[in-house]
Design a protein around this nucleic acid. Structure first.
Lengths: 215, 215
DNA sequence: TTTTTTTAGGGGAAAAACCCCCTTTTTTCT
DNA sequence: AGAAAAAAGGGGGTTTTTCCCCTAAAAAAA
């Protein structure tokens, strides 16, 4: 199945241009065109399936890229974010990566770069480093790295830990993990002991402080 | 003569990025690149001159930043330690300063901050007994100092939000706030609406992402 | 090959969190 | 001075989380 893309940009010409470019990649498909974050949220409700990747502009009226990124991370954490901006500013890039963006490319990039970035995100959720100044990559390790595998935790426990840091209930987490809530409860209990906490909030905070959960 | 720097960090990209930045400062020179504390100790023996400052990461396999700092203080006390970490946690900072670190900055600091920190250490070379010196906490000011007040939230709500990011139950939070659990429940509900979340974990994460909660 | 760990799952109960609707007093703003 | 917002508190309910104790297959380690 094709990877579904949402384009969030206030310039109609830009949106259409992007859609044309992306539709020429046969493994991707544009399923949404939105003027800003608000428009994106509204359209999401009417859509049957959730997009996999949001191509997100920063400068937009009403609800800008920062707000939109924060909203996506809170409400639809499964949607990967690729920031598409005309700003080549370290501040902005780092801020966006900290907000959970999986990638950041400039608007004057070539189509191949866009495709490579999309591929990277689709495959690993990892960042394309081509466009970035190497020193900007520092923040990637913590923000995006799957490499920060928690020592002492099993695969499933790590998986659970990531999902515990979300607005989901354990039942919903169980669905995402394709297992029963009872099994999830076992992971929870094991992690409570290992990290010496008494509540889910404590667990999440411990995970963040240990660098295992990206915020 | 140039001030000699040793970089101790397990990420090659990080090391190279740092070396690039530091070599651009003409008063500093990178003389060692090490993957962890063990590597540092081994390389030290082969080196004719001792570095002046160790740029030390915390999270490393084999021999982490804490162990390395302790080793340096006992075996090579003349080497100043500048901790370079992704963790903005007071616990860790204080622990490191007690171990004899001369400074502590975050990995997402700007190059100017790195240079200023190096200058501070080279010029004054203060020690661990000055750990409450505000100069040391430059990194905190940057990411933590400004955004502590939450716009749109009342005083009590902000107070509650801070406490919600802990391993305490609402009853315990109520005790700390000297009020009833029911009142606390009101704050919770108000914040859920304002931050558009459905659970306490979601609330805490939103607060962290908004910069209102320090982790 | 035996043992241990991981993964998967269940029953049942108590505690905590969550939700909606409500009152009163104090502070703040216009 | 009057209106609005903030602070404090409650009733009564449902849902979720937390806890303890238990089984068993599969995978990994010894």
């Amino acid at each position: 199945m094709n990877t579904k893309i949402a384009i969030i940009d206030d310039h109609t010409l830009m949106r259409n241009g992007l859609q044309g470019i992306i539709n020429a990649f046969n493994e991707y498909e544009v399923v949404m065109q939105c003027q800003n974050g608000k428009d994106f949220i509204e359209q999401l409700e009417t859509l049957s399936s959730v997009p996999d990747i949001a191509l997100l502009d920063i400068n937009m009226p009403e609800m800008d890229g920062f707000e939109t990124a924060a909203w996506i991370r809170t409400h639809k954490p499964e949607i990967k974010i690729l920031v598409l901006s005309m700003l080549n500013s370290e501040d902005v890039i780092i801020r966006m990566l900290r907000l959970g963006a999986s990638g950041y490319i400039l608007k004057d990039s070539k189509p191949e770069v866009l495709r490579a970035s999309l591929n990277n995100i689709r495959d690993q959720g990892f960042h394309s480093n081509e466009l970035l100044n190497p020193r900007l990559l520092f923040s990637l390790q913590q923000t995006n790295g799957k490499n920060t595998h928690a020592p002492g935790l099993s695969n499933r426990e790590s998986e659970f830990l990531q999902l515990a840091a979300s607005d989901l209930t354990y039942r919903e987490i169980a669905e995402k993990m394709n297992t029963s809530p009872k099994t999830v409860d076992n992971y929870r209990e094991a992690l409570f002991e290992k990290l010496e906490v008494k509540s889910r909030v404590g667990l999440v905070l411990a995970g963040i402080r240990a660098g295992w959960i990206k915020v």
